[in-house]
Design a protein around this nucleic acid. Structure first.
Lengths: 289, 289
DNA sequence: CAAGTTAATGTGGATTTTTTTCATCTGCGT
DNA sequence: ACGCAGATGAAAAAAATCCACATTAACTTG
């Protein structure tokens, strides 16, 4: 992309003739009118001829009014975008915030959670987990509360690409399953705080049985984190105005996706075949437009 | 309307005719050609008539090709700006991408899905749904596959703030439940494509029983979207390299959070009390450092 | 399976918009 | 006052967009 229209315009400002100057001033003052106006309307607005407008566009380095107009449209959104970047709604959500405020703030927090989780992720650990999963005959996944949903999600995805995996909601069932696991298998525990008793128990038992233990938690130094062979850390901070887990769950799911895509990469053909088959399987449960 | 062209286009994608679809695909794949092409050139490039291009532009909500082109120019710069932040190329994920590339690209797509969902959200519909939920004696939630997890998540959250809600995995159970629902109650159907037979059935029955019907879907013009009284639209694009639902599920959960926070705001004291109580309830299942 | 019906697509011309040409005007120096 | 150079506007020419209508394709129904 060449230099900004506004820059080009401002630089030429002193060299312009009277009519062109009038147009340029108007445009710089309120660029949006260019987007909304044809060359005729803009000319009339500035009380000059269309030809003058056309000449200004060319003298600013554009082929004509058309491309000038598009450049202005671009430049406006570029300015908007960089403004938005600084007007980040890092503030906490309050009881009197408008719907727009709420939506923007929540979205911002969650987008940030994903981004920060990605940036802070230990890629070596990630690929170690991927390797462990790939070699495992069975994968047990466990989480309670909202982390239970992440567990289910991971289970579904692993299952879809052809890996035997189980996610347990019931702690007793989980314990009986992992008690019988073996070296080479993988047990994955998910807990935002890393403090959940059930989840810790499950990973302890799995470790004792020789499985590779993986923790997905926001706090690597938590009991759960210290317990596990491999730790994948999410980076989310919950708003005080929470209705339970928001960002933490999003960050966990993002992590699940990193894992699955990475797994998928390793066995492209085979995994894609699995995906195609599972997709076809539900095809006749779909309506048509 | 600040809603992004690309969002509008992607949401209408499945509802488009063959010729329009071809154009839309081409545009989404390489948007810059629109900026460089007249309507004739673009038509020739896609091997369709100019009229079809014009029709697509109108069906995407623009007055014609002119304004469509400007919107594309804007949207391109917006995308560029946000990509710069992630320092990620626009290429899709490939089998040979490094772990870092994969993580950043997935994170970018998911963060983008959240942001675009927020940006394009119909706030009036959102608050209408919030009102309906608040007044309802019972809320039935239904989704299959990965949308089933969203359904569970929403159910958990509503439940936690003291609303009677049910999420059904089994279509039969769901149908028997909504068949007995009543006017004033709310039925929420979740489906990314809006095509799932079971989910459509459920909402149809609920509507017949007089409940307020809500659809959460990426495609407002899908059968499900057309069926519902109120539609909340997600704005996600799936990577071609998908392991099932990634961005779509994240966007759905973001939507769930918008809903719950908004609900929570309305009844600050009472809901916060519920949250505190439920938090305390699991307290002695937490370890200490 | 054919006829009828409806939706989708393309053609060509009407209309709008942009570009270019050229005549006129303004200001300035001689 | 005259002539010249650059600036400006009017209008013609060119280009592009939009629209009405014809045609084709797809689908339904008897």
């Amino acid at each position: 992309m060449s230099t900004d229209v506004f820059v080009a315009l401002r630089q030429r400002l002193p060299a312009l003739s009277k009519a062109e100057r009038r147009i340029a001033d108007r445009v710089l003052e309120q660029p949006s009118i260019v987007v909304d106006s044809t060359i005729n309307q803009l000319a009339e607005l500035c009380e000059v001829s269309q030809a003058s407008v056309a000449r200004l566009c060319q003298s600013a380095g554009f082929s004509g009014y058309k491309s000038f107009r598009m450049a202005i449209a671009s430049a406006i959104t570029r300015e908007e975008a960089s403004r938005d970047q600084f007007r980040v709604s890092d503030a906490d959500i309050g009881p009197d915030d408008s719907a727009l405020d709420v939506v923007m703030k929540v979205a911002y927090q969650e987008a940030r959670a994903v981004e920060e989780t990605a940036r802070a992720l230990d890629l070596v650990a990630l690929d170690a987990v991927v390797e462990a999963i790939r070699d495992a005959a069975r994968i047990d996944i466990f989480g309670v509360g909202s982390s239970g949903l992440t567990a289910q999600d991971l289970q579904q995805k692993l299952h879809r690409i052809g890996m035997s995996s189980y996610s347990w909601v019931d702690p007793h069932l989980a314990l009986t399953s992992v008690a019988l696991t073996r070296p080479g298998n993988v047990a994955i525990a998910i807990s935002h705080s890393g403090l959940s008793v059930e989840v810790n128990d499950m990973l302890t038992v799995a470790g004792r049985a020789g499985a590779t233990t993986v923790a997905i938690t926001n706090f690597p130094e938590s009991p759960l984190g210290l317990l596990a062979d491999l730790v994948l850390t999410t980076s989310s901070r919950e708003s005080r105005y929470r209705s339970g887990a928001m960002s933490s769950r999003i960050a966990q799911l993002a992590l699940v996706d990193f894992l699955t895509v990475r797994l998928l990469q390793g066995s492209y053909e085979q995994a894609n075949e699995s995906l195609r088959l599972t997709y076809d399987a539900v095809q006749n449960h779909r309506l048509r437009y």
